[in-house]
C-alpha cells in the first residue's frame, strides 16, 4: 500500500498547470512513482480528491493559487488556513478547499499534509503556462524532492 502521495492538481489552462508542471519536474528528477510513493496529476478532482488521500500517511498537494502576490510565488498552507470553509459547495464548484474540509470532517486527512499553492496569472484555456510558473514549479519540485529524500523516497 502506498503511504506517500504527491498530487499535482491543474487544468490545461495557462498557469493553472502549475501543479502538473511540479509533478513533471519531480518525475524528471528521477523521483519515481512506485509502491511506497505515488506521484500523480489530477484534473480538477472535486470530491474525488478524498479517496486519493485514503490510506496515505503523507500527502503533498500542489495547486495553482490566485493571490495578490507575484506570479510564481509559492506558499505553504496549514490546516488553520482552511478549516472553517463550508459554504458555496456545488457539483461544479467543489474545489480543493472544499474537498480538504470534507476530508477533515470525515477524519480522512493523512497524518502529514503539505499543501502548496503557486501564485498564478493568466488561465486562458489551451495556452502555455508563463515562464514564472515553469520556474516556480521546478523550484518547488526541488524542495519536495529534498523533503522526500530526507524520508528516503527519492
Amino acid at each position: 500500500m502506498s503511504t506517500v502521495r504527491v498530487l499535482g492538481i491543474g487544468s490545461p489552462s495557462g498557469d493553472d498547470q502549475a501543479g502538473w508542471l511540479t509533478v513533471d519536474a519531480l518525475l524528471s528528477k528521477c523521483v519515481l512513482s512506485g509502491h511506497e510513493l505515488v506521484i500523480e496529476k489530477l484534473d480538477r478532482p472535486g470530491a474525488s480528491l478524498i479517496p486519493k488521500m485514503e490510506n496515505a500517511s503523507w500527502v503533498i498537494l500542489v495547486d495553482a493559487m490566485q493571490s495578490t502576490g507575484q506570479v510564481g510565488q509559492v506558499q505553504r498552507f496549514d490546516q488553520t488556513d482552511w478549516a472553517g470553509y463550508c459554504q458555496g459547495l456545488s457539483s461544479h464548484g467543489f474545489g480543493v478547499l472544499a474537498a480538504l474540509s470534507l476530508a477533515h470532517e470525515l477524519g480522512c486527512l493523512p497524518h502529514r499534509l503539505d499543501v502548496y499553492g503557486i501564485g498564478i496569472g493568466q488561465v486562458t484555456p489551451g495556452e502555455a503556462p508563463s515562464e514564472s510558473i515553469q520556474v516556480a514549479a521546478k523550484q518547488l519540485a526541488m524542495r519536495i524532492a529534498t523533503d522526500l529524500n530526507n524520508k528516503q523516497f527519492a
Binding site: S48, I50, P51, E105
Partner: peptide
Amino acid sequence: CNSVIELARIAPDEVRRGLRIQALGN
C-alpha cells in the same frame, strides 16, 4: 445542513459511503 461538510458531522458513515459509490461510478 448548509453543505455536505456539515452533513458529514452528523452522518459521516453515510457521506463516506456516498463518496465511495461516486468514486466507483467514476
